[in-house]
Design a protein around this nucleic acid. Sequence first.
DNA 1: TCAAAAGTGTTAAATCTACACCCATGC
DNA 2: GCATGGGTGTAGATTTAACACTTTTGA
Lengths: 267, 267
Amino acid sequence: MGNVSERRKQPPQVGVSVVILALGPVPQSDVGAGAASSGMGSTLWMPLVKRVRQPFLGQWALPGGGLRADHSLEQSAYAALESTTSLHPKYLEQLYTFGDPARSHGGLPMVSIVYWALVGEADGRIDFAGGDNVKWFPVNHLPELAFDHRTIVEYAMNRLRGKIESPDIATRLVGERFTLSQLHDVYEAIAGQRIDLANFRRKMLASGLLEDTGEKLRIGRNRPAAVYRYSRKPGTDLWTEAGTASESDDTRIAFQDDDALSALMTA
Amino acid sequence: MGNVSERRKQPPQVGVSVVILALGPVPQSDVGAGAASSGMGSTLWMPLVKRVRQPFLGQWALPGGGLRADHSLEQSAYAALESTTSLHPKYLEQLYTFGDPARSHGGLPMVSIVYWALVGEADGRIDFAGGDNVKWFPVNHLPELAFDHRTIVEYAMNRLRGKIESPDIATRLVGERFTLSQLHDVYEAIAGQRIDLANFRRKMLASGLLEDTGEKLRIGRNRPAAVYRYSRKPGTDLWTEAGTASESDDTRIAFQDDDALSALMTA
DNA sequence: TCAAAAGTGTTAAATCTACACCCATGC
DNA sequence: GCATGGGTGTAGATTTAACACTTTTGA
């Protein structure tokens, strides 16, 4: 295996990891009260896997795996995703690549290309209890993580908060049909701040991205709320469905930061 | 070297490339008219290197190199930068990681971690003519590029356009001292649109990020303009100087997308 | 005095924000 | 009726966009 000074000039290992986020109930509290299944006071959850080898044996880590030369990055991310949940991601995007030699902490030098994924709430189909080696945690009650995965998660959360202004990102989390209050809950959950409901509602509706399905949904015993759907304008649709990870992941990069400078523009 | 099916399971090669951008004069035209050196109608330029081996021998490509296990990503990016220009970058940030097996086009499978860098105009110290193996090109007149580097450059430009709303990014391009018109030029150059000067001026000043050095600068033979400096508020300074690539590149990631959702917030 | 760029004013429209208010429903 | 969340109205403040205007300079 060569000695140390040889190894230094070698390329490092390459892996792909995924930060997976899903909407779930608030941790240890009011689930009791009658309500059907979804709604009120959501929190973000993410699955972690228990390490089965050194270093950090037994600790929790992000799902991931080595990169094979004949797989695209996105394919690898997708594979990692499937190792923890059978749900199809509503969103999958490259987050950042971490490659500092120091981060391996006793393991081999490793470059990790990290993706983040959103999977919808999917009507409680997520098993938040989880098995032995995979377990879901609320993002604000994570256990100690292996390597620098804590940093990575924090980065992902920040990015999520930053991205929320794009209206569809939240709708991907909340599910196919939703009331404005539910959507509002998600926004507050992600932002960690209060958002004026009246203004939120208006802004959302004004964006023209929501479509009123005729339906009504009664959450508790109160007035039924209108149920909306995210109306995917044909063509505006960069992403459609993350599941179809068939095309090259290089050619349809989301130019997410676009039109940010519209602020400075003048006709 | 093993056969093909063995190779597939191997990890791919890992490299780091850099898209380097600098402000320069407009290509082939009105440089003649008297004016001192800088000003009016700038364009973005970038250096490319000529490939000295197959595939794509003789074609132009982004500066870059292999990643050594004992180097951080940023160190590698920095090294690539130095191979084409002696200027210190004013900005250096990870752009994206490209890893589709198809992109190698006959070479070995390769994962490229791409950074982008801004180097200031530096008062014409850039040799836009360049040597044999390194040459600067205006971004809108690039030659044919090797691999998928065209895609990468386009991605970088889009990102740049997206980022410009953050006021300091443009000031990094324009140099240490500048007039508002110069800054305005840069914004228009990046945006590719007209921007109302009066409003631009007000918004910039209102941002509180500019500091009036007492100086005046006369560009042509007209009224002298006030010279400003970007006033780096102490602490707000995530970046300070890209040159000091000493710390881990993993710990001080710029959370660039922050406060984007301020739009939805309400106290 | 003229041209050209620097820099200021102004006004109508659009948007935000905060908060008050009405509506529909089951108990 | 009444409590509770759904949903609407609105007045004031703030921000934008457009463009007219004044100032300073060298020629």
